[in-house]
Amino acid sequence: MKDNVKEMQRKGMIRDSIFLGITLIIAIILLLIFPDRREAITTASWEFFIEMIWILPAVMVLMGLFAVWMSKETVIKYLGKTSGIKGISLAILFGALPTGPLYVAFPMAAALIKKGARISNVIIFLSAWACIKIPQEMVELRFLGPKFMASRLVLTIIFVVIMGVSIERLIEWSDKKASKSIGGEDDASI
């Protein structure tokens, strides 16, 4: 499981660096062809660079702290055994903590399923991890304003819960259908 994540990160790093090289070359060529646009482009880029450089290190420190202190084992332990409203809230909360990219969460989700956690909670956890991260919400607030950030947050929570529950129903329904069509009565035996 760890190798998958490592491999993903290594590949991503190489891909990003190649893209950065290409972008730089294109930008330099465009700047040389259109010298009159040079100032507008560099000013806009510089402004965003300054914005990001003030925010990024702090976000990374937060992510590092939570990644080390909130171990995977803790999350799996608590999320694996709770259900109902409490389980849903916990799944959103754990997902929203400032931790790494989504592919880090897949092995955790797989471990949760193996431990017998509810599918709805696992889906909610994954989706919260993807969409609602605490430092991300702060950056969203900065660049898109309080109204946009708040309404997206509320809507995302509502729909993520709906999605989690409906995917659980769908998977249970199709599993049942599959086991019936085989002819086994393993519903009761599991």
């Binding site: 294109i26 465009l30 560099t42 880029s45 965003f48």
Partner: peptide, 13 residues
């Protein structure tokens, strides 16, 4: 850095 350059080009062009 890619996004920052991209934003500059987007707003400039």
């Amino acid at each position: 850095l890619i996004i920052i350059i991209f934003i500059g080009l987007l707003l400039g062009f």
